[in-house]
Design a protein around this nucleic acid. Structure first.
Lengths: 219, 219
DNA sequence: AATGTTAAAATTGTATACAATTTCACGGAG
DNA sequence: CTCCGTGAAATTGTATACAATTTTAACATT
């Protein structure tokens, strides 16, 4: 069932312990705490996260399947490096997929999902005024997550969530201009209006603009 | 190191036992042997594949990370169904990503990778005449795999390989028209020529045409 | 007949032990 | 001094045991 708990600051998403460790390791890779190319010794991580090798190895398999770790049989797990060009590439790929996702979502969204999107957008409007950057990042992610889910294509949803996850942590520490929040709100408004009007092509265009500008903002 | 062992009919890709089991389970899901929504009992699969639960659970985590299984904590693993519309969606997503991959690959391919691509293309020409459908599928996949690798973007490469994997097995048993091989060869030739001429835009266009026609051929 | 309760069975989650393999340091041959 | 062996240490791969949780099936209550 959908909910908007993500608006809460200390929301942990009902994650299991294993999911939290998975995220922690992934973040360590993306933020450079774990150096690209370096070998991951299972016992070290077991000690760090206070668990035995059995569940830890499952987590490593998952991260490897997501592409942040390379697993070489009998040799170990190695950190995959993400270069600046990779990040640019991910923005570019995202700008190919995101508009199509929005278009499909407008065609396929359910009543319930739309209500959720509407409610979230009103929160966005409200919190933009307060200027709480952290909360806004959270809501923006939630807004996108509802759209990703509403396109009703699991693989596309997962691909976009993955790219967003990578971009989010590689972007860590970036300074945003003072008009960042209002600018992004207006881009989102254009997308939301397309949902309200049930206009897939308008949504595609608005999404393209938003994705493209997101890419430029990084420069 | 790159090699063209995939041309060999009984080539197993140096897969480990675990990788073979992973592929077998994935194929069972895509071909409907494991019914969508059904629960996967670990012990049953352990018996079927003659291994203990520890390595099997790692495999399940991997498949879940790839999106073919849904894992619910303490409740078990459930088969994700792939509908006909999903397959159409995957073709569509692929047609968005494939041309970009070709374009980047032409800009980024190394000498060694190009030699490999050239050699593979000559094999394609040769084997098209023989009409061995199975071998051609293998070579076509190899041709694409070299391109995916040459774009030097790991996530894009993996995304395309994943979609191809899904499409391949969902397409299982399809009857191809008699001119299928020569048609596909010409589409590939256009792509290869773009590599030969180092022309990214021509490659993008040729790839777009190939992806689009592949989508239509399914109908 | 429908609903709730409870205990046994089944299943998932985790820790540990051991086997298989690789890595690394040391010493000898050329 | 470099290049190989060689064996111990470290690390990865797998099986098994047990703990935690869920599922089930039988039974009682209304």
């Amino acid at each position: 069932m959908l909910n908007i708990d993500f608006l809460n600051n200390d929301y942990e998403g009902g994650k299991t312990a294993a999911e939290k460790v998975e995220e922690a390791i992934s973040i360590d890779i993306l933020t450079g705490v774990l150096k690209p190319g370096s070998r991951i010794i299972e016992d070290r991580l077991c000690e760090k996260y206070h668990m035995s090798r059995t569940p830890l190895r499952q987590i490593i398999q998952k991260i490897a399947a997501n592409g942040l770790i390379q697993l070489i049989p009998n040799r170990g797990a190695f950190v995959i490096g993400i270069t600046e060009r990779d990040v640019e590439d991910y923005f570019y790929i995202r700008s190919l997929l995101y508009p199509q996702c929005v278009k499909w979502a407008i065609q396929r969204i359910t009543e319930e999902e739309y209500s959720m999107l509407e409610e979230t957008f009103y929160f966005m409007e409200f919190y933009t005024a307060t200027g709480d950057m952290d909360k806004m990042h959270r809501i923006n992610s939630g807004f996108d997550a509802i759209i990703y889910n509403a396109c009703h294509n699991l693989q596309l949803e997962r691909a976009l969530l993955k790219y967003d996850f990578i971009i989010k942590y590689v972007n860590y520490g970036i300074i945003y201009p003072h008009n960042y929040l209002t600018t992004v709100l207006e881009e989102h408004r254009a997308i939301f209006n397309a949902f309200r009007d049930k206009n897939p092509d308008a949504g595609y265009e608005a999404a393209q603009i938003h994705a493209y500008k997101s890419m430029l903002r990084r420069k």
